[in-house]
Amino acid sequence: MENTRFKANDNFAISEVAGETVIVPVSDSVDTLNNLFVLNETGAFIINMMNEGKNLGEIADALVASYEIDRETALNDASEYAKRAVERGFFTVEQ
């Protein structure tokens, strides 16, 4: 699990708006244009690292360094968040 990496899909764009990280759809039809997301601080942290090509282990290490959590919790959080990002179609698992 620690070595799992992700590739950002082309159907969403990640950007900063008013100091917050948002995800907006890039679509070829009008049906999916309202799937807009504002990420919380931890979510933005994880999504941005996934977008930079970091694997789950590296993301967990970064979470431990930035927040007061143990590594097991950090890895579980990163894994859970990444799983949801993949389910929503933002990323594809690259291994």
Partner: peptide, 9 residues
């Protein structure tokens, strides 16, 4: 903030 921008978008 972002909420206003996305609601407008």
């Amino acid at each position: 903030g972002a909420k206003a921008t996305l609601k407008l978008l």
